[in-house]
Design a protein around this nucleic acid. Sequence first.
DNA 1: CGGTTCGTTGAGGCCCATCAATCTATGTGG
DNA 2: CCACATAGATTGATGGGCCTCAACGAACCG
Lengths: 261, 261
Amino acid sequence: MIDVQQAEGSSAHSSQRSALPLVNTRLWNSGFLSREEQNALQNAVSPARSVGPNIDLVREGDRTDSLFIVIKGWACRYTTTKDGARQLPALLVPGDVGNLDSLMFDRLDYGVRTLTQATIVALPRDRALALAAQYPGIGRTFTWAALVENTILSKWALSLGRRSARERLAHLLCELSVRLNAGDGNESSFACPLTQEQLADALGLTSVHVNRTMQQLRNDGMVETENRTMTLPDVAGLRRIGGFDPDYLHIKSPAQTQLAE
Amino acid sequence: MIDVQQAEGSSAHSSQRSALPLVNTRLWNSGFLSREEQNALQNAVSPARSVGPNIDLVREGDRTDSLFIVIKGWACRYTTTKDGARQLPALLVPGDVGNLDSLMFDRLDYGVRTLTQATIVALPRDRALALAAQYPGIGRTFTWAALVENTILSKWALSLGRRSARERLAHLLCELSVRLNAGDGNESSFACPLTQEQLADALGLTSVHVNRTMQQLRNDGMVETENRTMTLPDVAGLRRIGGFDPDYLHIKSPAQTQLAE
DNA sequence: CGGTTCGTTGAGGCCCATCAATCTATGTGG
DNA sequence: CCACATAGATTGATGGGCCTCAACGAACCG
């Protein structure tokens, strides 16, 4: 069995090369796992594998029997209408689970696709369910993860239904800033590999309009983009624009994460 | 202890008056509960209480330590932007859980409000968590319920982001028809207490536009409304319009529901 | 019968989509 | 090293779907 304690400190910020890929993932940081449960979960996942950009981990409507956890890189869930319009119900950053639904459903009604080169581990459904039944903390962690996703999705629905393009974009950028743990005083900066078309698919807009809206935010000094890096010089202002309140993300940074028991 | 077996048959379609209010709720019908687990869950909920229309069970941002399960009547989750625009992330019909999130989070970032006179039971968070830890089927049921909600919400996001008013309305009506188990060949009919303004808040539209869109669907012979009853004379046609595919709802009708083990 | 809620209708306007072209950066093969 | 191809960002012109504002009708109710 892998001993978590031993390697934990040194690998906290380089999980992609670690033998402990789950460190700092959402499941790991739920706060419900005892050390024993962390070990059990760690031992259940497949070795990390590297995947190129724009590769489907699961296609829309496909069957799968594994959960895919993003260790490094970005991915997304995508859905399409019968006319081919695309809407992303989720952006996945390191630590996120791509398809929690596969825990319960054979068939996914969305696809999961990498956006960048990414490192992925798989957790077989059977093992996940067995662990959930055996360890209360693991079962609780799955429920918690599903509910966090639900919360994020509710906010997206609010944006899609009721916010202007400017507000939507501001809100999403604020959300990403927090989820990537990229805060630093009132300024935030993070690598954002999304094309404007991908942003548009997340925001329910066209890429043309995302472009114009982004320019407006740039002119207002709220955003700087340069070489796939997104800088938010005035996070407080951007939050005001987007009506963003970070509490809903239920983020537990590594520092806050506690072991159960 | 209440004996489920005894009363089950006779109360299948009158759960609101039964001493077994959970019969036919989403949790109950997950298919993961053994008879013992069903009993345990049943014994954990408060007595059913009747609530008037437009009453908040939980206000936006409030703390609560109970899950509210809708036994009879309709309710909704609601969220608002800072400007006061309202978006419903969920419509709740009999059997739905209003605030699964309260299982894990102290504070709700949406409100739960009745739309009609409703019968509600409460499940205290502490007891729910204890049951989930003790009975694997109950833990699994919570996760399953959260994932079903997630799926529905993903579809709503697709509608909000990428579908026209006509498509959105068609899709929602199809969804409600299935969730209410109101099918009957190619025709469907169900009591729908929603005002056009409430529909608008679910669909991310204005009530004026919902009105015009509804008229269009009526002219096309796709919808008939009369006295709070919604009739869909051509479900297949409406599904085509909305791009609706019922599989995603993961409905388990009472007939299909099986006991675990 | 007056008040309230809800549905309906009309006029006008804006936000964002659509279509299309141009520009830039990057990469690739000869 | 350049010609070329491709992906992505940018810009402009135009139009439409839906919003906004406002009024009116219909149903219900105390």
